[in-house]
Design a protein around this nucleic acid. Structure first.
Length: 564
RNA sequence: GAGAGUGUAGCUCAGUUGGCAGAGCAUUCGACUUUUAAUCGAAUGGUCCUGGGUUCGAGUCCCAGCACUCUCACCA
Protein backbone atom coordinates (compact mmCIF):
# COMPACT_ATOMS: atom_id res chain seq x y z
CA UNK A 1 0.00 0.00 0.00
CA UNK A 2 2.81 2.36 0.92
CA UNK A 3 4.52 1.48 -2.36
CA UNK A 4 1.48 2.28 -4.38
CA UNK A 5 1.21 5.65 -2.73
CA UNK A 6 4.84 6.46 -3.34
CA UNK A 7 4.37 5.60 -6.99
CA UNK A 8 1.36 7.79 -7.49
CA UNK A 9 3.17 10.53 -5.66
CA UNK A 10 6.06 10.55 -8.12
CA UNK A 11 3.63 10.09 -10.94
CA UNK A 12 2.03 13.36 -10.00
CA UNK A 13 5.26 15.24 -10.58
CA UNK A 14 6.07 13.54 -13.88
CA UNK A 15 2.64 14.01 -15.36
CA UNK A 16 2.03 17.57 -14.42
CA UNK A 17 0.90 18.65 -17.87
CA UNK A 18 -2.76 17.83 -17.69
CA UNK A 19 -3.42 14.37 -19.03
CA UNK A 20 -7.12 14.61 -18.62
CA UNK A 21 -7.84 14.48 -22.33
CA UNK A 22 -11.23 13.07 -21.60
CA UNK A 23 -12.32 16.14 -19.73
CA UNK A 24 -13.54 19.30 -21.37
CA UNK A 25 -10.82 20.55 -23.56
CA UNK A 26 -11.12 24.29 -23.22
CA UNK A 27 -7.45 25.09 -23.19
CA UNK A 28 -7.89 27.94 -20.73
CA UNK A 29 -9.49 25.62 -18.27
CA UNK A 30 -6.59 23.21 -18.65
CA UNK A 31 -4.08 25.95 -18.10
CA UNK A 32 -5.80 27.01 -14.93
CA UNK A 33 -5.94 23.45 -13.83
CA UNK A 34 -2.29 22.60 -14.36
CA UNK A 35 -1.47 25.42 -11.99
CA UNK A 36 -3.90 23.86 -9.56
CA UNK A 37 -2.32 20.43 -9.97
CA UNK A 38 1.18 21.67 -9.43
CA UNK A 39 0.10 23.63 -6.42
CA UNK A 40 -1.39 20.48 -5.04
CA UNK A 41 1.64 18.36 -5.89
CA UNK A 42 3.97 20.78 -4.17
CA UNK A 43 1.76 20.99 -1.12
CA UNK A 44 2.82 18.11 1.03
CA UNK A 45 0.31 15.31 1.00
CA UNK A 46 0.06 13.24 4.19
CA UNK A 47 3.37 11.42 4.45
CA UNK A 48 2.10 8.94 7.00
CA UNK A 49 0.39 6.97 4.26
CA UNK A 50 1.36 3.75 5.97
CA UNK A 51 -0.73 4.75 8.97
CA UNK A 52 -3.72 5.67 6.83
CA UNK A 53 -6.62 3.41 7.59
CA UNK A 54 -8.15 3.02 4.16
CA UNK A 55 -11.05 1.05 5.52
CA UNK A 56 -12.21 4.29 7.06
CA UNK A 57 -14.63 5.50 4.37
CA UNK A 58 -13.62 9.13 4.83
CA UNK A 59 -9.92 8.35 4.59
CA UNK A 60 -10.53 6.20 1.52
CA UNK A 61 -12.23 9.11 -0.22
CA UNK A 62 -9.44 11.53 0.73
CA UNK A 63 -6.93 9.01 -0.58
CA UNK A 64 -8.77 8.66 -3.89
CA UNK A 65 -8.92 12.44 -4.11
CA UNK A 66 -5.13 12.49 -3.93
CA UNK A 67 -4.79 9.75 -6.51
CA UNK A 68 -7.10 11.62 -8.86
CA UNK A 69 -5.14 14.81 -8.39
CA UNK A 70 -1.95 12.85 -8.96
CA UNK A 71 -3.32 11.76 -12.31
CA UNK A 72 -3.57 15.43 -13.19
CA UNK A 73 -7.33 15.43 -13.03
CA UNK A 74 -9.19 18.22 -11.29
CA UNK A 75 -11.42 16.48 -8.73
CA UNK A 76 -13.67 19.54 -8.61
CA UNK A 77 -14.51 19.56 -12.28
CA UNK A 78 -15.05 22.06 -15.02
CA UNK A 79 -17.79 23.37 -17.22
CA UNK A 80 -19.57 20.46 -18.92
CA UNK A 81 -21.30 21.47 -22.12
CA UNK A 82 -23.94 19.90 -24.32
CA UNK A 83 -25.24 17.55 -21.73
CA UNK A 84 -28.67 15.99 -21.84
CA UNK A 85 -30.93 15.62 -18.85
CA UNK A 86 -31.92 12.08 -18.02
CA UNK A 87 -35.48 12.99 -19.00
CA UNK A 88 -34.17 14.11 -22.40
CA UNK A 89 -32.37 10.78 -22.79
CA UNK A 90 -35.67 9.06 -22.22
CA UNK A 91 -37.17 11.18 -25.00
CA UNK A 92 -34.56 9.68 -27.34
CA UNK A 93 -35.43 6.06 -26.59
CA UNK A 94 -37.13 5.63 -30.00
CA UNK A 95 -33.77 6.35 -31.64
CA UNK A 96 -32.41 3.12 -30.16
CA UNK A 97 -32.77 0.60 -32.98
CA UNK A 98 -31.50 -2.72 -34.18
CA UNK A 99 -29.41 -2.59 -37.33
CA UNK A 100 -29.20 -5.86 -39.20
CA UNK A 101 -26.18 -6.91 -41.17
CA UNK A 102 -27.75 -5.77 -44.46
CA UNK A 103 -28.05 -2.24 -43.01
CA UNK A 104 -31.77 -2.39 -42.44
CA UNK A 105 -32.89 -1.00 -39.08
CA UNK A 106 -35.82 -2.31 -37.11
CA UNK A 107 -37.45 -1.10 -33.92
CA UNK A 108 -36.64 -2.83 -30.67
CA UNK A 109 -39.28 -5.02 -29.06
CA UNK A 110 -40.96 -3.83 -25.87
CA UNK A 111 -37.95 -4.61 -23.71
CA UNK A 112 -39.62 -3.16 -20.62
CA UNK A 113 -42.21 -5.93 -20.71
CA UNK A 114 -41.65 -9.05 -18.65
CA UNK A 115 -42.34 -11.36 -21.54
CA UNK A 116 -39.66 -10.08 -23.86
CA UNK A 117 -36.19 -11.62 -23.51
CA UNK A 118 -34.06 -9.05 -25.31
CA UNK A 119 -31.01 -11.29 -25.34
CA UNK A 120 -33.00 -13.99 -27.11
CA UNK A 121 -34.61 -11.44 -29.45
CA UNK A 122 -31.19 -10.20 -30.53
CA UNK A 123 -30.08 -13.76 -31.24
CA UNK A 124 -33.23 -14.35 -33.27
CA UNK A 125 -32.79 -11.14 -35.25
CA UNK A 126 -29.02 -11.32 -35.65
CA UNK A 127 -26.49 -10.89 -36.86
CA UNK A 128 -26.60 -7.15 -36.33
CA UNK A 129 -25.95 -4.45 -33.79
CA UNK A 130 -27.90 -2.07 -31.62
CA UNK A 131 -27.54 1.56 -32.61
CA UNK A 132 -28.48 4.67 -30.66
CA UNK A 133 -27.68 8.35 -30.25
CA UNK A 134 -24.51 9.54 -28.56
CA UNK A 135 -25.45 11.39 -25.38
CA UNK A 136 -23.65 13.32 -22.65
CA UNK A 137 -25.16 13.04 -19.19
CA UNK A 138 -24.11 14.28 -15.79
CA UNK A 139 -25.22 13.24 -12.35
CA UNK A 140 -24.50 11.78 -8.95
CA UNK A 141 -23.48 8.13 -8.60
CA UNK A 142 -26.10 6.38 -6.49
CA UNK A 143 -25.28 2.73 -7.01
CA UNK A 144 -22.31 0.87 -8.43
CA UNK A 145 -22.01 -2.78 -9.37
CA UNK A 146 -18.45 -3.57 -10.37
CA UNK A 147 -17.98 -7.01 -11.93
CA UNK A 148 -14.30 -7.25 -12.65
CA UNK A 149 -13.49 -5.44 -15.84
CA UNK A 150 -16.99 -4.07 -16.02
CA UNK A 151 -18.78 -1.50 -13.88
CA UNK A 152 -22.48 -0.72 -13.83
CA UNK A 153 -23.43 2.53 -12.19
CA UNK A 154 -26.68 4.34 -11.67
CA UNK A 155 -26.45 8.10 -11.76
CA UNK A 156 -29.15 10.63 -10.92
CA UNK A 157 -29.78 14.15 -12.08
CA UNK A 158 -32.78 16.17 -11.02
CA UNK A 159 -34.96 14.65 -13.69
CA UNK A 160 -34.28 10.99 -12.95
CA UNK A 161 -31.91 8.05 -12.81
CA UNK A 162 -30.08 6.28 -15.61
CA UNK A 163 -27.68 3.36 -15.78
CA UNK A 164 -24.10 3.75 -17.01
CA UNK A 165 -22.12 0.85 -18.48
CA UNK A 166 -18.34 1.09 -18.13
CA UNK A 167 -16.36 -1.69 -19.81
CA UNK A 168 -12.59 -1.73 -19.51
CA UNK A 169 -12.13 -2.63 -23.18
CA UNK A 170 -14.75 -0.11 -24.30
CA UNK A 171 -13.48 2.97 -22.42
CA UNK A 172 -9.77 2.18 -22.34
CA UNK A 173 -7.42 1.70 -19.41
CA UNK A 174 -7.16 5.35 -18.44
CA UNK A 175 -10.90 5.90 -18.19
CA UNK A 176 -11.33 2.59 -16.42
CA UNK A 177 -8.68 3.41 -13.85
CA UNK A 178 -10.45 6.69 -13.24
CA UNK A 179 -13.78 4.90 -12.84
CA UNK A 180 -12.24 2.71 -10.15
CA UNK A 181 -11.54 5.91 -8.17
CA UNK A 182 -15.19 6.91 -8.27
CA UNK A 183 -17.20 6.58 -5.08
CA UNK A 184 -20.91 6.59 -4.42
CA UNK A 185 -22.03 10.19 -4.33
CA UNK A 186 -19.45 11.55 -6.77
CA UNK A 187 -20.73 13.76 -9.55
CA UNK A 188 -19.63 12.49 -12.93
CA UNK A 189 -20.15 13.22 -16.59
CA UNK A 190 -20.48 10.46 -19.13
CA UNK A 191 -20.44 10.47 -22.90
CA UNK A 192 -21.57 7.40 -24.76
CA UNK A 193 -24.18 5.65 -26.78
CA UNK A 194 -27.70 5.41 -25.46
CA UNK A 195 -28.85 1.81 -25.64
CA UNK A 196 -30.20 -1.23 -23.89
CA UNK A 197 -28.40 -3.94 -21.96
CA UNK A 198 -29.26 -7.61 -22.43
CA UNK A 199 -31.88 -7.24 -19.74
CA UNK A 200 -33.44 -4.27 -21.52
CA UNK A 201 -32.31 -1.59 -19.08
CA UNK A 202 -31.83 1.87 -20.59
CA UNK A 203 -28.11 2.53 -20.39
CA UNK A 204 -25.42 4.93 -21.50
CA UNK A 205 -22.54 2.82 -22.79
CA UNK A 206 -19.64 4.99 -21.67
CA UNK A 207 -16.95 6.01 -24.11
CA UNK A 208 -15.61 8.82 -21.98
CA UNK A 209 -15.78 9.50 -18.24
CA UNK A 210 -15.32 12.87 -16.59
CA UNK A 211 -15.12 13.42 -12.85
CA UNK A 212 -17.13 16.54 -12.13
CA UNK A 213 -16.95 16.64 -8.33
CA UNK A 214 -15.66 14.27 -5.69
CA UNK A 215 -17.82 13.67 -2.64
CA UNK A 216 -15.79 13.54 0.57
CA UNK A 217 -18.60 12.56 2.92
CA UNK A 218 -20.06 9.06 3.08
CA UNK A 219 -23.52 8.64 1.57
CA UNK A 220 -26.46 7.28 3.57
CA UNK A 221 -27.38 3.60 3.45
CA UNK A 222 -28.13 2.90 -0.18
CA UNK A 223 -31.50 1.29 0.22
CA UNK A 224 -33.06 2.71 3.38
CA UNK A 225 -31.60 6.16 2.73
CA UNK A 226 -31.41 8.76 5.45
CA UNK A 227 -34.46 8.22 7.64
CA UNK A 228 -33.56 10.19 10.73
CA UNK A 229 -35.91 13.19 10.57
CA UNK A 230 -33.52 15.51 12.30
CA UNK A 231 -30.63 14.62 10.00
CA UNK A 232 -32.83 14.93 6.93
CA UNK A 233 -33.78 18.50 7.79
CA UNK A 234 -30.40 19.49 9.10
CA UNK A 235 -28.69 18.13 5.99
CA UNK A 236 -31.38 18.83 3.42
CA UNK A 237 -28.71 18.62 0.70
CA UNK A 238 -28.14 14.96 1.51
CA UNK A 239 -31.86 14.35 1.87
CA UNK A 240 -32.50 15.83 -1.59
CA UNK A 241 -29.55 14.06 -3.16
CA UNK A 242 -30.10 10.56 -1.80
CA UNK A 243 -33.67 10.08 -0.61
CA UNK A 244 -36.28 9.12 -3.16
CA UNK A 245 -39.15 11.50 -3.74
CA UNK A 246 -37.75 14.45 -1.82
CA UNK A 247 -36.71 16.37 -4.92
CA UNK A 248 -40.08 15.66 -6.51
CA UNK A 249 -41.93 17.06 -3.50
CA UNK A 250 -40.02 20.32 -3.62
CA UNK A 251 -40.30 20.61 -7.40
CA UNK A 252 -44.04 20.08 -6.99
CA UNK A 253 -44.06 22.80 -4.36
CA UNK A 254 -42.53 25.16 -6.91
CA UNK A 255 -45.08 24.10 -9.52
CA UNK A 256 -47.94 24.72 -7.10
CA UNK A 257 -46.66 28.20 -6.24
CA UNK A 258 -46.13 29.05 -9.91
CA UNK A 259 -49.61 27.80 -10.67
CA UNK A 260 -51.15 29.97 -7.93
CA UNK A 261 -49.42 33.03 -9.35
CA UNK A 262 -50.58 32.26 -12.85
CA UNK A 263 -54.18 31.61 -11.75
CA UNK A 264 -54.28 34.96 -9.99
CA UNK A 265 -52.42 36.82 -12.74
CA UNK A 266 -54.81 35.42 -15.35
CA UNK A 267 -57.71 36.88 -13.39
CA UNK A 268 -56.15 40.30 -13.31
CA UNK A 269 -54.64 40.22 -9.84
CA UNK A 270 -51.51 42.22 -9.17
CA UNK A 271 -48.68 40.80 -7.06
CA UNK A 272 -47.03 43.14 -4.57
CA UNK A 273 -44.43 42.98 -1.82
CA UNK A 274 -45.48 44.42 1.50
CA UNK A 275 -43.10 45.18 4.34
CA UNK A 276 -41.92 42.27 6.46
CA UNK A 277 -40.87 44.63 9.28
CA UNK A 278 -43.92 46.05 10.98
CA UNK A 279 -44.39 48.62 13.71
CA UNK A 280 -47.83 47.24 14.59
CA UNK A 281 -48.07 43.44 14.32
CA UNK A 282 -51.60 43.26 12.93
CA UNK A 283 -53.86 41.17 10.76
CA UNK A 284 -53.83 38.01 12.83
CA UNK A 285 -53.91 36.75 16.39
CA UNK A 286 -50.35 35.64 16.92
CA UNK A 287 -47.24 36.51 18.87
CA UNK A 288 -44.66 38.25 16.72
CA UNK A 289 -40.88 38.02 16.60
CA UNK A 290 -39.36 41.22 17.82
CA UNK A 291 -36.33 42.97 16.46
CA UNK A 292 -34.71 46.36 16.77
CA UNK A 293 -33.72 49.07 14.35
CA UNK A 294 -30.46 50.65 15.49
CA UNK A 295 -30.46 53.96 13.65
CA UNK A 296 -34.05 54.73 14.54
CA UNK A 297 -33.65 53.09 17.95
CA UNK A 298 -37.05 51.52 17.81
CA UNK A 299 -38.72 48.17 18.20
CA UNK A 300 -39.87 46.44 15.04
CA UNK A 301 -41.74 43.20 14.70
CA UNK A 302 -41.64 40.66 11.90
CA UNK A 303 -44.99 40.51 10.17
CA UNK A 304 -47.54 37.95 11.32
CA UNK A 305 -49.90 38.56 8.37
CA UNK A 306 -50.08 40.37 5.06
CA UNK A 307 -53.59 41.69 5.48
CA UNK A 308 -53.47 45.29 6.61
CA UNK A 309 -50.98 46.51 4.03
CA UNK A 310 -52.81 44.80 1.19
CA UNK A 311 -56.01 46.50 2.29
CA UNK A 312 -54.22 49.86 2.30
CA UNK A 313 -53.39 49.15 -1.34
CA UNK A 314 -57.06 48.44 -2.01
CA UNK A 315 -57.84 51.87 -0.61
CA UNK A 316 -55.26 53.22 -3.04
CA UNK A 317 -57.07 51.61 -5.94
CA UNK A 318 -55.30 48.29 -6.50
CA UNK A 319 -58.54 46.50 -7.12
CA UNK A 320 -57.18 42.98 -7.27
CA UNK A 321 -54.04 42.49 -5.27
CA UNK A 322 -52.12 39.64 -3.71
CA UNK A 323 -48.95 38.80 -1.92
CA UNK A 324 -47.42 35.36 -1.69
CA UNK A 325 -44.84 35.57 1.01
CA UNK A 326 -43.36 34.61 4.30
CA UNK A 327 -44.88 35.47 7.65
CA UNK A 328 -43.39 34.85 11.08
CA UNK A 329 -45.15 33.75 14.22
CA UNK A 330 -43.39 33.29 17.51
CA UNK A 331 -45.20 30.16 18.55
CA UNK A 332 -44.74 26.46 19.10
CA UNK A 333 -43.62 23.97 16.49
CA UNK A 334 -45.62 20.98 15.37
CA UNK A 335 -46.06 18.79 12.30
CA UNK A 336 -48.37 21.54 11.05
CA UNK A 337 -46.55 24.63 12.32
CA UNK A 338 -43.22 26.21 11.49
CA UNK A 339 -42.29 29.63 12.94
CA UNK A 340 -41.90 31.02 9.43
CA UNK A 341 -44.34 29.90 6.79
CA UNK A 342 -45.65 30.96 3.43
CA UNK A 343 -49.04 32.57 3.04
CA UNK A 344 -51.08 33.76 0.15
CA UNK A 345 -53.36 36.68 0.85
CA UNK A 346 -55.45 38.15 -1.89
CA UNK A 347 -58.13 40.83 -2.04
CA UNK A 348 -60.70 41.48 -4.70
CA UNK A 349 -62.58 44.79 -4.81
CA UNK A 350 -66.35 44.53 -5.24
CA UNK A 351 -66.28 40.84 -4.35
CA UNK A 352 -67.30 39.06 -1.17
CA UNK A 353 -66.49 35.83 0.62
CA UNK A 354 -68.42 33.85 -1.95
CA UNK A 355 -66.26 35.17 -4.77
CA UNK A 356 -63.31 34.05 -2.65
CA UNK A 357 -64.76 30.56 -2.40
CA UNK A 358 -64.81 30.24 -6.18
CA UNK A 359 -61.31 31.64 -6.37
CA UNK A 360 -60.05 29.16 -3.75
CA UNK A 361 -61.44 26.26 -5.73
CA UNK A 362 -59.87 27.57 -8.91
CA UNK A 363 -56.47 28.09 -7.29
CA UNK A 364 -56.43 24.55 -5.88
CA UNK A 365 -57.83 22.80 -8.93
CA UNK A 366 -55.43 24.61 -11.29
CA UNK A 367 -52.52 23.58 -9.05
CA UNK A 368 -53.66 19.96 -9.05
CA UNK A 369 -53.77 19.99 -12.84
CA UNK A 370 -50.22 21.34 -12.94
CA UNK A 371 -48.71 18.67 -10.70
CA UNK A 372 -50.95 15.87 -11.99
CA UNK A 373 -52.44 12.98 -10.12
CA UNK A 374 -56.11 13.85 -10.55
CA UNK A 375 -58.79 15.35 -8.33
CA UNK A 376 -59.20 12.14 -6.34
CA UNK A 377 -56.00 11.82 -4.34
CA UNK A 378 -54.74 10.18 -1.20
CA UNK A 379 -53.62 12.10 1.83
CA UNK A 380 -52.32 10.33 4.89
CA UNK A 381 -54.19 7.15 4.04
CA UNK A 382 -57.57 8.72 3.25
CA UNK A 383 -58.95 9.50 -0.19
CA UNK A 384 -59.89 13.13 -0.81
CA UNK A 385 -62.00 14.35 -3.69
CA UNK A 386 -61.09 17.77 -5.06
CA UNK A 387 -63.61 17.65 -7.87
CA UNK A 388 -65.24 21.09 -7.76
CA UNK A 389 -67.45 22.33 -6.26
CA UNK A 390 -66.13 21.47 -2.81
CA UNK A 391 -68.53 20.61 -0.04
CA UNK A 392 -70.07 23.59 1.83
CA UNK A 393 -71.73 23.77 5.24
CA UNK A 394 -72.47 26.49 7.76
CA UNK A 395 -70.76 26.75 11.10
CA UNK A 396 -74.10 26.40 12.89
CA UNK A 397 -75.10 23.29 10.93
CA UNK A 398 -71.84 21.53 11.69
CA UNK A 399 -72.02 22.62 15.32
CA UNK A 400 -75.51 21.27 15.70
CA UNK A 401 -74.64 18.03 13.96
CA UNK A 402 -71.57 17.33 16.07
CA UNK A 403 -72.94 18.34 19.45
CA UNK A 404 -76.67 17.88 19.09
CA UNK A 405 -77.31 21.30 20.58
CA UNK A 406 -78.41 24.56 19.06
CA UNK A 407 -75.43 26.96 18.98
CA UNK A 408 -77.85 29.84 19.58
CA UNK A 409 -78.90 28.33 22.92
CA UNK A 410 -76.33 29.94 25.21
CA UNK A 411 -77.17 27.94 28.31
CA UNK A 412 -76.97 24.66 26.45
CA UNK A 413 -73.63 25.72 24.96
CA UNK A 414 -72.26 26.55 28.41
CA UNK A 415 -73.44 23.22 29.79
CA UNK A 416 -71.80 21.42 26.89
CA UNK A 417 -68.57 23.32 27.42
CA UNK A 418 -68.55 22.27 31.07
CA UNK A 419 -68.98 18.70 29.92
CA UNK A 420 -65.83 19.10 27.83
CA UNK A 421 -64.04 20.56 30.88
CA UNK A 422 -63.48 23.85 29.07
CA UNK A 423 -63.07 26.90 31.28
CA UNK A 424 -65.89 29.28 30.51
CA UNK A 425 -65.51 31.92 33.20
CA UNK A 426 -65.40 35.44 31.81
CA UNK A 427 -65.40 34.26 28.23
CA UNK A 428 -67.55 35.69 25.50
CA UNK A 429 -70.23 33.18 24.42
CA UNK A 430 -68.83 33.13 20.89
CA UNK A 431 -65.38 32.27 22.23
CA UNK A 432 -66.89 29.34 24.12
CA UNK A 433 -68.84 28.29 21.06
CA UNK A 434 -65.70 28.40 19.01
CA UNK A 435 -63.71 26.34 21.48
CA UNK A 436 -66.38 23.66 21.30
CA UNK A 437 -66.32 23.92 17.53
CA UNK A 438 -62.57 23.48 17.40
CA UNK A 439 -62.76 20.56 19.80
CA UNK A 440 -65.69 18.67 18.31
CA UNK A 441 -65.90 19.68 14.65
CA UNK A 442 -62.63 20.83 13.11
CA UNK A 443 -60.58 17.67 13.59
CA UNK A 444 -63.25 15.54 12.00
CA UNK A 445 -63.58 17.65 8.85
CA UNK A 446 -62.04 15.48 6.16
CA UNK A 447 -62.90 17.87 3.38
CA UNK A 448 -62.13 19.66 1.30
CA UNK A 449 -64.99 21.57 2.87
CA UNK A 450 -65.89 25.24 3.17
CA UNK A 451 -67.25 26.10 6.61
CA UNK A 452 -69.25 29.31 6.30
CA UNK A 453 -70.88 31.99 8.44
CA UNK A 454 -68.90 32.28 11.66
CA UNK A 455 -69.98 34.03 14.89
CA UNK A 456 -69.24 37.70 14.30
CA UNK A 457 -67.40 38.50 17.50
CA UNK A 458 -64.51 36.16 16.77
CA UNK A 459 -63.95 37.88 13.42
CA UNK A 460 -62.96 41.49 14.06
CA UNK A 461 -61.92 42.22 10.48
CA UNK A 462 -65.04 40.81 8.87
CA UNK A 463 -68.24 42.31 7.58
CA UNK A 464 -71.43 41.14 9.26
CA UNK A 465 -74.28 39.53 7.42
CA UNK A 466 -76.75 42.16 6.27
CA UNK A 467 -79.74 40.42 7.85
CA UNK A 468 -77.92 39.09 10.93
CA UNK A 469 -75.21 41.15 12.64
CA UNK A 470 -74.34 38.15 14.86
CA UNK A 471 -72.96 36.28 11.88
CA UNK A 472 -69.80 37.20 9.97
CA UNK A 473 -69.40 36.62 6.25
CA UNK A 474 -66.47 34.32 6.60
CA UNK A 475 -65.43 30.85 5.52
CA UNK A 476 -62.61 28.57 6.42
CA UNK A 477 -61.59 25.61 4.28
CA UNK A 478 -60.57 22.41 6.01
CA UNK A 479 -58.80 19.32 4.75
CA UNK A 480 -58.08 16.42 7.11
CA UNK A 481 -58.77 18.60 10.14
CA UNK A 482 -56.29 21.23 8.98
CA UNK A 483 -57.30 24.78 8.31
CA UNK A 484 -56.03 25.62 4.84
CA UNK A 485 -57.84 28.77 3.90
CA UNK A 486 -59.64 31.60 5.61
CA UNK A 487 -61.70 34.23 3.83
CA UNK A 488 -63.90 37.19 4.64
CA UNK A 489 -66.15 39.73 3.19
CA UNK A 490 -63.82 42.45 4.38
CA UNK A 491 -64.95 45.00 6.93
CA UNK A 492 -64.59 48.47 5.39
CA UNK A 493 -66.49 50.59 7.91
CA UNK A 494 -63.70 52.64 9.55
CA UNK A 495 -65.70 53.58 12.64
CA UNK A 496 -66.76 50.00 13.31
CA UNK A 497 -63.20 48.83 12.67
CA UNK A 498 -61.88 51.35 15.18
CA UNK A 499 -64.49 50.24 17.68
CA UNK A 500 -63.49 46.60 17.23
CA UNK A 501 -59.84 47.46 17.71
CA UNK A 502 -60.72 49.27 20.93
CA UNK A 503 -62.94 46.69 22.53
CA UNK A 504 -60.88 43.73 23.51
CA UNK A 505 -62.82 40.55 23.34
CA UNK A 506 -63.87 39.32 26.73
CA UNK A 507 -61.64 36.55 28.00
CA UNK A 508 -58.82 37.19 25.57
CA UNK A 509 -55.42 38.48 26.50
CA UNK A 510 -54.06 41.43 24.62
CA UNK A 511 -51.48 39.32 22.86
CA UNK A 512 -54.07 36.70 21.87
CA UNK A 513 -56.28 39.20 20.16
CA UNK A 514 -56.33 40.20 16.55
CA UNK A 515 -57.63 43.56 17.67
CA UNK A 516 -54.42 45.55 17.80
CA UNK A 517 -55.05 49.21 17.22
CA UNK A 518 -53.50 50.38 13.98
CA UNK A 519 -54.44 54.06 13.67
CA UNK A 520 -53.04 54.43 10.21
CA UNK A 521 -55.06 51.47 9.01
CA UNK A 522 -58.26 53.00 10.36
CA UNK A 523 -57.32 56.30 8.69
CA UNK A 524 -56.80 54.38 5.45
CA UNK A 525 -60.30 52.94 5.74
CA UNK A 526 -61.66 56.46 6.15
CA UNK A 527 -60.27 57.21 2.70
CA UNK A 528 -62.63 54.51 1.43
CA UNK A 529 -61.85 50.84 0.85
CA UNK A 530 -64.20 49.25 -1.66
CA UNK A 531 -66.37 46.38 -0.47
CA UNK A 532 -64.19 43.37 -1.09
CA UNK A 533 -63.56 39.71 -0.61
CA UNK A 534 -60.31 38.68 1.03
CA UNK A 535 -58.65 35.27 1.17
CA UNK A 536 -55.69 33.72 2.94
CA UNK A 537 -54.26 30.30 2.07
CA UNK A 538 -51.58 28.46 4.03
CA UNK A 539 -49.28 27.47 1.20
CA UNK A 540 -47.18 24.98 3.14
CA UNK A 541 -50.28 23.10 4.26
CA UNK A 542 -51.69 23.13 0.75
CA UNK A 543 -48.42 21.68 -0.50
CA UNK A 544 -48.55 19.05 2.27
CA UNK A 545 -52.00 17.95 1.18
CA UNK A 546 -51.23 17.95 -2.54
CA UNK A 547 -47.89 16.15 -2.20
CA UNK A 548 -49.08 13.76 0.52
CA UNK A 549 -46.56 14.79 3.17
CA UNK A 550 -47.45 14.32 6.82
CA UNK A 551 -45.23 17.02 8.24
CA UNK A 552 -44.86 20.66 7.32
CA UNK A 553 -41.14 20.10 7.76
CA UNK A 554 -41.19 17.86 4.70
CA UNK A 555 -42.43 20.69 2.48
CA UNK A 556 -40.21 23.47 3.88
CA UNK A 557 -36.66 23.18 2.60
CA UNK A 558 -35.05 24.53 5.75
CA UNK A 559 -37.42 24.39 8.74
CA UNK A 560 -36.38 25.95 12.02
CA UNK A 561 -34.01 23.70 13.99
CA UNK A 562 -32.05 24.02 17.15
CA UNK A 563 -28.35 24.57 16.48
CA UNK A 564 -26.29 21.41 16.18
C1' G B 1 -44.73 24.67 28.13
C1' A B 2 -46.77 19.20 29.55
C1' G B 3 -46.80 13.84 28.60
C1' A B 4 -44.96 9.43 25.92
C1' G B 5 -41.13 7.27 22.95
C1' U B 6 -36.22 7.20 20.85
C1' G B 7 -30.67 8.02 21.09
C1' U B 8 -25.57 1.70 19.89
C1' A B 9 -20.14 1.72 13.67
C1' G B 10 -20.30 6.88 8.22
C1' C B 11 -25.91 5.08 7.20
C1' U B 12 -30.16 1.53 8.58
C1' C B 13 -30.97 -1.29 12.81
C1' A B 14 -30.52 -5.86 16.57
C1' G B 15 -28.68 -6.38 21.54
C1' U B 16 -32.12 -11.93 25.91
C1' U B 17 -31.98 -12.23 33.23
C1' G B 18 -26.79 -6.96 34.46
C1' G B 19 -21.60 -11.08 32.39
C1' C B 20 -16.12 -10.44 26.03
C1' A B 21 -20.18 -4.89 21.47
C1' G B 22 -23.57 -7.47 16.92
C1' A B 23 -25.79 -7.63 11.65
C1' G B 24 -26.74 -5.44 6.78
C1' C B 25 -25.09 -1.39 3.74
C1' A B 26 -20.68 1.58 3.00
C1' U B 27 -15.13 1.08 3.15
C1' U B 28 -10.35 -1.98 2.11
C1' C B 29 -8.18 -6.54 -0.18
C1' G B 30 -9.16 -10.89 -3.52
C1' A B 31 -12.44 -13.32 -7.76
C1' C B 32 -15.74 -11.97 -11.80
C1' U B 33 -17.06 -8.20 -19.29
C1' U B 34 -24.45 -7.49 -19.43
C1' U B 35 -25.31 -6.27 -13.69
C1' U B 36 -30.28 -4.58 -11.17
C1' A B 37 -30.14 -3.20 -3.32
C1' A B 38 -25.07 -7.75 -8.35
C1' U B 39 -22.78 -12.13 -6.15
C1' C B 40 -18.84 -14.95 -3.48
C1' G B 41 -14.44 -14.95 0.16
C1' A B 42 -11.74 -12.11 3.84
C1' A B 43 -10.66 -7.70 6.77
C1' U B 44 -11.39 -2.91 9.05
C1' G B 45 -14.64 0.17 11.73
C1' G B 46 -17.58 1.87 18.64
C1' U B 47 -17.21 8.62 23.54
C1' C B 48 -23.26 2.40 23.32
C1' C B 49 -26.12 10.94 23.56
C1' U B 50 -23.72 13.52 28.18
C1' G B 51 -22.79 13.55 33.54
C1' G B 52 -23.51 11.18 38.09
C1' G B 53 -25.13 6.71 41.00
C1' U B 54 -26.09 1.27 42.33
C1' U B 55 -23.02 -3.17 41.46
C1' C B 56 -17.45 -7.59 41.68
C1' G B 57 -19.32 -6.08 36.80
C1' A B 58 -23.89 -1.31 33.34
C1' G B 59 -25.44 -0.58 26.24
C1' U B 60 -28.96 -2.89 29.82
C1' C B 61 -31.00 -0.73 36.41
C1' C B 62 -31.58 4.41 39.09
C1' C B 63 -31.09 10.03 39.01
C1' A B 64 -30.13 14.55 36.31
C1' G B 65 -29.28 16.90 31.72
C1' C B 66 -29.18 17.35 26.14
C1' A B 67 -31.26 16.28 21.30
C1' C B 68 -34.91 14.30 18.14
C1' U B 69 -39.91 12.06 17.05
C1' C B 70 -45.05 11.74 18.33
C1' U B 71 -49.38 13.59 21.17
C1' C B 72 -51.36 17.89 23.66
C1' A B 73 -51.18 23.35 24.44
C1' C B 74 -50.26 28.22 21.79
C1' C B 75 -51.50 28.84 16.36
C1' A B 76 -52.49 28.75 10.59
Amino acid sequence: MGDALAKTGSLAKKRLPCVNEAANSQSSARLIFSTFASAFAVTDTPSNADDLDLTDPHAARRHKLEEITAKGIDPWGQRFDDRLLVSECRDRIPQIQWQQKDGETIALPDVESEEVDYRQWKADNGPGEEIGPIVRVAGRILLARPTGKLIFMNIRDWTGDIQIFVGKKQVGDENFDLAKLFDLGDLIGVQGRLGRTNTGELTVFAEELILLTKMLEVPPEKHAGMTNQDLRQRMRYADLAFNDGVMQTFLDRTKIIKSIRSTLDDQGFCEVEGPTLHTVPGGAAARPFETHHNALDMKLTMRIALELHLKRLMVGGMERVYELGRVYRNEGLSPRHNPEFTMLETYQAYGNYESMMDLTEKIICDAIEKIGGGFKREYNGTMLDFTPPFQRATYAELFQKATGIDPADEDAVKEYAKGLKLTIDGKHPDVIRNEIFEEKVEDSLQGPIFVTDYPASICPLTKRKKDNPEIAERFEMFICGMELANAYTELNDPDLQEELFKTQLEGQDDEDSMAKMDHDFVRALRYGMPPAGGLGIGIDRLVMVLTNQKSIRDVILFPVLRPE
